[in-house]
Simulated assay, not measured.
Amino acid sequence: METLAVALLGFFFVGYVVLGGADLGLGMLLPYLGRNREERHRTVSAIWPLFLANEVWLVAAAGLFIGAFPTLEGEVFSGLMVVFVPLLAGWMIRDAGLWWRAAGSGPAADWLVCGGSWLAAGGWGWLIASLLNDSPTEPTSLGLGAVTTLFVLLLFLAHGLGFAALRLTGTPLARALRLTGRGGRGGRHSLLLTSLVSATLAVLAGARLPLSEHAASDTALTLIVPLSLAALPLLLAAHLWLWRLVSRTGFRLSSL
């Protein structure tokens, strides 16, 4: 059960980093892709409603981490609190901007989306750097943290460009294709490459955690792991259905 719990946790975490990293990258690129109100509206619309489905992967990973590895969870969250605070702040700011944009707010909401995306991406970079540290329950040094965070920021930007090449239309799409290559194939290749790099980085960071040594009791795992396994195909099916629905209908926010 311990091995299965570790594998499920890794799968959920990788799923979020790959999927959530794409919409964070797109939010980071908002000033480049959207030069006016209509273009920003079109760019933000590309994030809807997929960002909600992407965050379910993070919720699933956090829930499994808390339930299956409660002792380690406490050590990680308390030891890395200084890292989690800006990460969560960026996440909330970005999501607030998306909801305000859906409600019809203008430039202020767009800046919240962009600024929150940058702050959350930087938080993820610092968290990954700390997990790669000799002691994954303590913040990393300034040097390693800065280098790793810069790499993650650039990775999310590239990931967002590939996502933009698949989701955007019009002038914002043309701007994205200038950097990814002409045509949908260039965007797909770019997104595939950055997805592989993101997944590899997430696995390397997670592998530093002493998960097996801090697993919950067999009784708890016997309850948690089967429930997580049962939820996994439902999560995959729902995400695939939503992606196909959005791609087919060209979902856009109704209000400018």
Rank of each mutant, 00 (worst) to 15 (best):
5 A>G: 06
6 V>H: 04
7 A>G: 02
11 F>E: 12
11 F>W: 14
16 Y>C: 01
19 L>N: 05
20 G>Y: 13
21 G>Y: 15
29 L>T: 02
29 L>R: 07
32 Y>T: 09
32 Y>F: 07
35 R>Q: 10
37 R>P: 00
38 E>A: 05
40 R>P: 00
40 R>M: 07
42 R>M: 08
46 A>N: 08
53 A>K: 11
56 V>T: 12
56 V>K: 05
56 V>Q: 04
57 W>A: 00
58 L>R: 10
59 V>F: 13
60 A>Q: 15
65 F>T: 04
70 P>V: 01
71 T>L: 05
73 E>D: 03
74 G>C: 04
75 E>G: 00
76 V>M: 10
78 S>N: 14
80 L>I: 02
81 M>P: 13
83 V>P: 06
84 F>L: 11
86 P>T: 14
87 L>S: 00
99 W>G: 00
102 A>Y: 11
103 A>S: 06
104 G>H: 12
108 A>N: 09
109 A>T: 13
112 L>T: 05
114 C>N: 09
116 G>D: 08
117 S>K: 04
118 W>S: 00
121 A>L: 06
126 W>E: 01
141 S>V: 10
143 G>A: 10
149 T>Q: 06
153 L>I: 02
155 L>W: 05
156 F>D: 07
164 A>E: 10
171 T>I: 08
172 P>E: 09
172 P>F: 01
175 R>L: 07
179 L>H: 08
180 T>D: 10
181 G>R: 09
183 G>T: 09
185 R>Y: 11
188 R>M: 13
193 L>P: 04
194 T>G: 01
198 S>Y: 11
208 R>K: 10
211 L>H: 06
212 S>T: 15
212 S>H: 13
214 H>V: 03
216 A>W: 15
216 A>G: 02
217 S>A: 03
218 D>E: 15
218 D>W: 13
221 L>S: 01
224 I>P: 00
224 I>V: 13
226 P>C: 01
231 A>I: 06
234 L>Y: 07
234 L>R: 06
243 W>M: 05
250 G>L: 07
251 F>T: 14
252 R>L: 10
253 L>K: 11
254 S>E: 15
255 S>L: 15
256 L>K: 05
